[in-house]
């Protein structure tokens, strides 16, 4: 019986899901407020920015890459959108321009990785600093305020009682899921991560796809930046510092292998939910903020250990 349960978990990569369920279970009993619609909606809203970045990060990590520049891309695109809107450009146009810049930033990463053959970690470490610097130059180091009121509605409004960022997150997840699991592109991304050489010899245009995943990551980081700016009512040059690590954590918690070729998008969503639930739960439990990070770190380590135990059994 126990063996059958373990097999099912292995087969459908249910480890992270079980972790999440246990976490929710504990918190529901520990605090009266946790399992209420209002609070759960709040958790969903809180994770939306990280979840969007983590989707792009999943694409990149599936090809055995990594994108450390997402936090800086987020800040740069948010600043560009904000500056354009302050200059009375239509918010939709301004947002489009920001997404374009995000895509361009991703393409730059991709070209370095695919065509110059540099290690993704080093390329994006470099562009992380570069994009942050460009943001500071562009904003002169000052936050951009006085964004149009309509724009604020994007991040703070609701539709059918669900916050708009949560809808955006859901749409992006569904679209990304279709791409990864139903299209030739998705299959090829997995193949590249599984074994780049085999994919190349099978006629997969590996370089184009590598550029593609970094473009996806850049665009989604940019979308996250627009949402963040809209929720805060301003674009900060220091926005998104450290977000790349949250996104990577969500992806890894979700069971995706940093070696590429293995992992799921659902896992990433669960990973982001685990992170959001931990944050929310620790707040509700009134844990001293100094202890919060330490506790969070321990929970992450425990979760990953459980996951490794599972894969070591193969």
């Amino acid at each position: 019986m126990m063996q059958r349960i373990i097999n099912t978990i292995k087969r459908y990569h249910l480890g992270p899901l079980i972790g999440l369920v246990i976490l929710i279970f504990i918190l529901s009993f520990a605090t009266a407020k946790f399992f209420t619609f209002g609070n759960l909606r709040n958790v969903a809203l809180q994770i939306s920015v990280n979840a969007l970045i983590a989707v792009g990060m999943t694409f990149v990590i599936l090809t055995a890459g990594i994108d450390l520049s997402v936090g800086s891309t987020l800040a740069l695109s948010a600043a560009i959108a904000a500056q354009l809107m302050v200059g009375h450009i239509n918010p939709w146009l301004a947002g489009g321009a920001a997404l374009f810049v995000g895509g361009l930033a991703g393409a730059l990463n991709g070209v370095f990785v695919a065509y110059a053959g540099l290690a993704p970690f080093i390329v994006t470490l470099g562009t992380m600093t570069l994009f942050r610097g460009l943001t500071e130059i562009y904003t002169n180091g000052m936050p951009i305020f006085n964004l149009p009121r309509g724009f604020a509605g994007f991040g703070t409004g609701t539709f059918l009682a669900i916050p708009i960022p949560v809808w955006v997150m859901a749409l992006v997840f569904v679209a990304a899921w279709v791409v990864l699991y139903r299209t030739t592109a998705g299959r090829r991304i997995y193949a590249i991560g599984g074994n780049e050489r085999v994919a190349f010899l099978a006629g997969v245009p590996v370089k184009r796809y590598l550029v593609g995943v970094y473009v996806v990551s850049g665009i989604l980081a940019s979308l996250a930046g627009i949402i963040l700016a809209s929720r805060l009512g301003s674009a900060e040059p220091t926005a998104g510092v450290g977000y790349e690590l949250d996104a990577i954590t969500a992806v890894v918690l979700g069971g995706t292998s940093l070696m590429g070729g293995e992992g799921t998008l659902i896992g990433t969503l669960i990973g982001a939910l685990i992170l959001g639930t931990i944050d929310n739960g620790l707040n509700l439990l009134n844990v001293n903020s100094f202890y919060q990070d330490a506790v969070k770190g321990l929970i992450i380590l425990a979760a990953i250990m459980l996951d490794r135990k599972k894969s070591a059994g193969r």
């Binding site: 299959r187 090829r188 193949a191 074994n195 085999v198 070729g261």
Partner: peptide, 23 residues
Amino acid sequence: NEGLLLPFTIRENLALPTLSHRS
């Protein structure tokens, strides 16, 4: 190292070079 995506299924490996014809 060059022929198979080892952790992938028989179905996926058999379709890899001809994926675009199957879409």
